[in-house]
C-alpha cells in the first residue's frame, strides 16, 4: 500500500466520522441527503460481496466492515432515530434513486472486466459511487446554507477521491500490468463532480467566510 492510497482511505474514514459525529452528538442531519447515504450503503453492499470469501489483509477486511457498518447506521439514524429524523430536509431531498441506479446497472452489464455476478455488481458499485454524491450536491444547492460539519464531510469525501487518483498513478508506474480503465474513468468522473464544490470551499476558507453556494 502506498501513501496516497492510505491517505485516501483515511480521509474517507474521516469523512464518515465527521458525519457520524454530527448525527450522533448534535442529533441533527440537516443538510445531509438521505438519498446519497442510501446510495453509499448500496455501493458498499455490492462492492464488498467478497468480504468473507477473499481475504486480502486484516486492514482491508476491517475497513470494509467499517464502511458497511457506518453507511447502514447513518441510513438507520436518518430514517428511524426519533430525534435525528426530524431534522432531515425531506421536502428538499427529492432526487430519484433509480435515475442513477438503473443506468449504472445497465452500464455495468455492458462494460465490465468479466461477465459474472460478482464482477458485474463490483463494476456497478464503481459507477454508482461515481454519481452517488449528486443528490447531496443538489440538496446543498437548494438549501444553500451549509454548516461546517456538512461542508467538511463533502470536502473530505472529495479529498478521498483525489488521493485515489494519485494512488492509481503511483501504482501504474510501480506495478507491472496495473491497468484498470473502469475504476479509473469512474473515479475520475467522481472526482470532477467535486470540482465546483472545491472551488467554493477554498474560496470561503481563503476569505475566512461561511461556505455558501451561489444560487
Amino acid at each position: 500500500m502506498n501513501i496516497f492510497r492510505f491517505a485516501g482511505d483515511m480521509t474517507h474514514l474521516a469523512s464518515v466520522l465527521v458525519l457520524l459525529l454530527k448525527i450522533h452528538t448534535i442529533k441533527s442531519c440537516a443538510g445531509v441527503s438521505l438519498k446519497t447515504q442510501e446510495l453509499y450503503a448500496i455501493v458498499f453492499a455490492t462492492r464488498y460481496l467478497d468480504i468473507f470469501t477473499d481475504f486480502i489483509s486484516l486492514y482491508n477486511t476491517f475497513m470494509k466492515l467499517v464502511f458497511l457498518g457506518s453507511s447502514f447506521s447513518i441510513v438507520w439514524y436518518m430514517r428511524s432515530h426519533k430525534i435525528v429524523r426530524r431534522s432531515y430536509d425531506k421536502d428538499q431531498d427529492t432526487f430519484r434513486h433509480y435515475f442513477l441506479i438503473v443506468p449504472c446497472l445497465l452500464l455495468a452489464m455492458i462494460i465490465n472486466e468479466k461477465f459474472t455476478f460478482r464482477e458485474v455488481l463490483w463494476t456497478f458499485s464503481l459507477f454508482l459511487e461515481a454519481v452517488a454524491i449528486l443528490p447531496q450536491l443538489v440538496l446543498l444547492q437548494r438549501t444553500r446554507n451549509i454548516d461546517n460539519l456538512t461542508g467538511q464531510y463533502i470536502f473530505l469525501l472529495g479529498a478521498y477521491r483525489a488521493f485515489y487518483i494519485f494512488n492509481w498513478i503511483y501504482r501504474y508506474f510501480t506495478e507491472p500490468h496495473y491497468v484498470h480503465w473502469i475504476p479509473w474513468i469512474a473515479g475520475l468522473l467522481q472526482t470532477l463532480l467535486y470540482g465546483d464544490f472545491f472551488y467554493y470551499y477554498f474560496h470561503s476558507w481563503k476569505n475566512n467566510k461561511k461556505l455558501q453556494l451561489p444560487a
Binding site: R5, D54, I56
Partner: peptide, 10 residues
C-alpha cells in the same frame, strides 16, 4: 484464479 489487483482497494 486470483482476484484482479484493483479489487485490493476499497
Amino acid at each position: 484464479d486470483t482476484e484482479p489487483k484493483s479489487h485490493d482497494e476499497l
